[in-house]
Structure formats: structure tokens, C-alpha cells
Amino acid sequence: MTGKPKIALYWCSSCGGCEESVIDLAEDLLTVTAAVDIVFWPVALDFKYKDVVAMNDGEITATLINGAIRMGEQEHMAKMLRKKSRLVIAHGSCAHLGGVVGLANFYRREDLLSRLYQEVPTINNPQGILPQLETIESGRKVKLPDFHDTVKTLDQVVEVDYTIPGCPPTPELIKEAMMMVLEDRLPPRGSVLAEKKALCDTCPRRDSKPDKLRITEFKRVYETEWDPEKCFLAEGIICLGPATRGGCNARCINANMPCRGCFGPTDDVRDQGAKSSSFLASIIDVTDKEALKKIVDAIPDPGGLFYRYGLASSILKGKMTRGRS
């Protein structure tokens, strides 16, 4: 043992992009790894589960968990790592908000399983078998993790000390979070380690935003040619920047794409989707019912648009159906 702080990284329901974002630290990764002992990182290094279980409670200085919680095994690992760690840091949109995988909460568990294992054209499952918790394979009992009714955010399963937001987080934010841990200069517990204000504050197109935004038509990006210097909303393109925490270096805006909301809401907003729907409604410059309906009906997939990342952490946490847990 070197006496250096111990760090663990784990992934749950995620795409792997957050793991990539750690690699994106590039040379800085060496600085970080030199300062710490990585004790668990299944995606990159060969550590054993039993070795982590054998550690003392609180022995790990900080564990970064990315991905949402859908499977029993994920919940189990999150709880085990929580016990072993002084700090648990939710890493990325899925752990923070449920993320894109959280969109599954628009569907019921049974519908997802039957769709995936019985209905999609590419499946070959003539007996219509669905995944079981236990099965006998070659005479041996095999256990599978259970599939929960809904997708949960990490903080709905274990206590989370800090959050690094983003899909994925920027390497800068990850490095800064690590340095905060190492240099013991962490903000109040529960903080999201990014900007306090919404994206508009640091948006490069900020100055082109008119004092009074008024639009009569929502346009999709492929439907229009827009001025790459001008505020998206002023051009009628839906941008969730006003309802999304800043700190992403305006990556999407700089790539000439509107904000999709991956950093989640600011501290005082409980439902990013509801707020997004509210602010967008406000800038519609029509109150005639027919015209209003026409404009509003043109918003593509409002559920998916406003809750692309935040469905599992929203007030309703998903579609209202019987028997949710």
C-alpha cells in the first residue's frame, strides 16, 4: 500500500461514453493516476469483486459511478461501493438524471421485455421465452440479475455526495472533480460540480439573443438554414440552454447544434422538462387557439425532447402506469 488516496470507478446502465471521458483526460490521466491508487475499474483494469468486498468500510476515498440503475446487480454494486467509499460521485447524465437510458421509463417493464424478446423482427424465439432470474444450463443452476420495473438515478438507490454532470462530462470537469477530492476543497455535499447558472450565461451566442424573444414557428435543424452566430431560439430552433446547467464549454453550441439538456437543471428547478415546456410556451407569439395548437403540435416528440436526459429524475419519474416501483 502506498498510502495514496484510493479511487474506484464503476459503470451501471450506460453506453460507455463516461468511461471514454476518463480516457479523454489524455496526459492529465497520468497526473491523476500518479496521485492515486485505482483499486477498482472493471472496464479498464483487472480487479476482483471479492477484493473490494474484503476492503474496510470507507476505505476507498472516492468512487465514480456512471450509468443509471436498472438491474439488481447494479443496485447491489452501488450499495456495496457506497459502503466501501467515503465519497460516492455520480459520474455523467445517466447516474445523475437517468440519462438516455432513463427514456425507458416511458414504457412498462413487460412491454420492453416482450418487445425485445418476442416482437422485434430480428428475434428468433419461437417459444417466446423471457429472461428468468434462474435457469438450469447444462445441469448447472445459473442466476441472472433481475430487471427492475423502472430506471433509477444513482441517488434514488444510494446516497450520492457529488455529481459530475454531462453526457459525457468534459475531461476538464472530471479532472477538476478529482483535484477537488485530492486537494480537499470540495463544495457543500450534494453539489453538482459544474456551473451554478444555466448555459445561456456562458453561451458564445449570448449577445445575439434579443431582449424580447418571440417566435411563431418551431423549426427542426434539418428544416432550416440558420445563422451560425445567432441564438438558436431567436431562429425558432428549440434549444434547452436556458433550462440546462452550464459548464459544458458549450460543446454542442460550438458544433452548431442546440443544447439538448444533458447537464440537467439548475439547483432550484425540480423538473427540467416542465420548465423547458414553460419557457418555450412563453416565447410563442400567438394566443389564438387554432394557431397556437398548430405551433405546439409541430414540437417533435415533446416527451423525448424535454426529458431526453431527465425522465428518471423528473417529478413523475416516467410514464404513469399501474404497478411502477
Partner: peptide, 17 residues
């Protein structure tokens, strides 16, 4: 303003069941 929000929210609610 309420009228406008109502129309947008109704569409969101329908996706939420």
C-alpha cells in the same frame, strides 16, 4: 401565458401517460 403553457404541457402529459 397560462393558455400557451397549457397547450404545450398537455402534449408533454400525454407522453407521460
Amino acid at each position: 401565458q397560462t393558455l400557451k403553457r397549457y397547450y404545450v404541457l398537455k402534449r408533454v402529459l400525454s407522453t407521460l401517460g
